[in-house]
């Protein structure tokens, strides 16, 4: 029996007056990689950003239904969004390290959450950078600007920044879309390792990538969740005709 980390029930979301998510019901399994697929504009990023309430920043968004993280409603029961976001980290499509040093990037979240002890901080930074497999490449230049790294390295740095504060869930919004195949492979491998500790949700356009990295897959279309099942099953025997069409390249 799998444990469900995040459960969304009857979730609806509007940007102003236009509905963007329609009656979504989904249960995200713990310590597994869940992929969300679907054509452009179907609401994948929006759904992802519901889970850490990053949509709150956009004026005019309205939400109904409930989203539970460990049985707690993230919109009602949690005391603030900041402790939610400490538990639910995010890695973005557009690689976005801060214009600061490598070290400062990773340390940022720790400082935000009140870490004071220098030795502990340094250990945690090192651990996070090791975890994303970047340590050997940057250990001699921790105090160089993050923008001096390659695109793939920058994205791994962003992952290190996200996991430094030891979240329980990490959201990836098309993390490899601007990376070359080798960097992509590294990040995919990294995800494999990360799921031991974290629950991972990844939005991707790349079917092969979803097949390679994910244990479960959700397929969305026009704001609706069409199908959600184990990845193997979805790719071999999709239940819904529309999923099959998408997987066989008939649209999208």
């Amino acid at each position: 029996m799998v444990n469900h980390k995040i459960i969304a029930k009857n979730l609806n979301l509007w940007y102003g007056n236009s509905p963007c998510l329609k009656n979504i019901n989904i249960s995200i399994p713990e310590n597994a990689v869940t992929a969300i697929m679907g054509p452009s504009g179907c609401g994948k990023s929006t759904l992802l950003r519901v889970f850490n309430r990053l949509n709150d920043l956009i004026d005019g968004t309205r939400i109904t239904g409930e989203v539970l993280l460990d049985e707690q409603d993230i919109y009602k029961d949690m005391k603030d969004v900041f402790s939610l976001r400490k538990k639910v980290g995010m890695v973005f499509q557009k690689v976005n390290p801060f214009p600061k040093t490598i070290f400062e990037n990773v340390v940022y979240g720790l400082k935000i959450h009140g870490w004071k002890d220098k030795a502990k901080i340094e250990k945690q930074v090192q651990k996070s950078i090791i975890d994303v497999g970047l340590w050997d490449e940057v250990k001699d230049c921790l105090h160089k600007n993050a923008f001096s790294l390659s695109g793939g390295q920058q994205q791994r740095l962003c992952i290190a920044r996200a996991i430094a504060i030891e979240p329980e869930v990490v959201l990836f919004d098309e993390p490899c879309s601007s990376l070359d195949p080798i960097s992509t492979a590294k990040i995919e491998q990294l995800m494999e390792e990360l799921k031991e500790k974290y629950t991972i949700i990844i939005v991707t356009h790349n079917l092969q990538q979803a097949a390679r990295v994910s244990d479960y897959t959700a397929f969305m279309l026009l704001g609706e969740l069409i199908e959600f099942s184990e990845t193997n099953q979805m790719f071999t025997t999709p239940k819904d005709k529309r999923t099959e069409n998408y997987l066989t390249g008939k649209f999208g």
Partner: peptide, 26 residues
């Protein structure tokens, strides 16, 4: 860039922390 702000919010920073630590220095 809005991406910097989002990244800061995503690790749990408040608006004021984001402004003083990311927006202002940038």
């Amino acid at each position: 860039p809005k991406e910097f702000k989002e990244a800061s919010f995503a690790v749990g920073a408040t608006k004021w922390q984001t402004i003083t630590k990311i927006v202002f220095p940038t």
